[in-house]
Amino acid sequence: MANLVNNLPLELANWISLGLFVLLFFFVWLLPFSRVRAPSGKTFSDIRIWASALIACQLALYAFFS
């Protein structure tokens, strides 16, 4: 088992990271608007938008360096 884990290909790591961030993106948008809105109610106070920008940035980083 340990031998199998030690021999897993390096490329898989980047794909798993990208996959985790994509899953996180969908999870973020499953949350209802009522949980993330600011008292002001402005569009950009929806922190799901902040999270999406952050995830996009991470996807770009892992894609660039893979």
Partner: peptide, 23 residues
């Protein structure tokens, strides 16, 4: 040096350990 992960058999930071343990 430009790779964000180290091989799975790296003694200190194997990528499997980084994702499962750290992440």
């Amino acid at each position: 040096h430009l790779n964000p992960y180290l091989p799975a058999n790296h003694p200190d930071f194997p990528w499997t350990g980084v994702i499962l343990g750290l992440g």
